Amino acid sequence: MIGYLNLTLRLAIWFLLTSDLSPANIFIGIAVCFLLPGLHKTPSALTDWLRVFWEIIIAVPQAYWEALQMMVSPHVQEEVTLERVKPRRTPGLIFLDIFLITFTPKTIVLKYHEDGWYEVHKIKRG
């Protein structure tokens, strides 16, 4: 089941990058998804995937709220923090975590450290 989620994530990214749903592009996208390494190497739980998708749904209104806050009051303080990667994360889940952090306007992931840390840049009110 999880292999299908990884494949679906890769295919969705392919379609977002190419913006083409022609039969030839679909075939090429499926071929590329299968040729990329690491599809079945790292097991992950379905609950981890569902939790990340739920967090993405929650992040949409949060992103609008943060954008409104930034327009109303200035945010002049900056800080760079290290956040721990959640345990048992596959590369697909790490990608979605980075997407989730970067999706909101006040935070962006600067770097992913291989030893299990995200370097996150945050802005705050003055």
Rank of each mutant, 00 (worst) to 15 (best):
L7T: 09
L7V: 02
L9F: 08
L9Q: 15
L11I: 13
A12Q: 09
I13Q: 05
W14I: 06
L16P: 00
L16I: 10
L17M: 15
S19D: 13
D20S: 12
L21D: 07
S22P: 03
S22N: 10
S22I: 02
S22T: 14
P23W: 15
I26D: 02
I26K: 01
I28V: 15
I28H: 07
I28R: 11
A31R: 10
A31F: 11
V32G: 00
C33P: 04
L35N: 12
P37V: 07
L39Q: 12
K41P: 00
T42E: 13
P43K: 10
S44D: 11
S44P: 00
L46N: 00
L46I: 13
D48S: 15
W49D: 13
R51Y: 14
R51V: 09
F53T: 05
F53R: 01
W54H: 04
I56E: 06
I57L: 14
A59C: 08
A59T: 09
V60N: 08
Q62P: 00
Y64P: 00
W65Y: 14
E66F: 09
Q69M: 12
M70K: 04
V72Q: 09
S73H: 02
P74G: 00
V76Q: 03
Q77P: 00
E78G: 04
E78S: 07
T81S: 05
T81W: 05
E83D: 05
E83N: 12
R84M: 08
V85E: 11
K86P: 07
P87A: 14
P87Q: 12
P87C: 03
R88C: 03
R88S: 05
T90S: 15
T90V: 03
P91E: 15
G92K: 00
I94H: 00
F95Y: 13
D97F: 04
D97L: 11
D97W: 15
I98M: 15
L100E: 07
I101M: 12
I101G: 03
I101Q: 12
F103Q: 01
T104H: 04
T104A: 07
T107C: 08
I108F: 03
V109P: 01
L110M: 15
K111D: 14
K111G: 01
Y112I: 10
H113I: 08
E114R: 11
E114K: 11
D115P: 06
D115Q: 08
G116D: 10
W117M: 09
Y118G: 00
V120E: 03
K122V: 12
I123C: 08
I123E: 04
R125M: 06
G126Q: 13
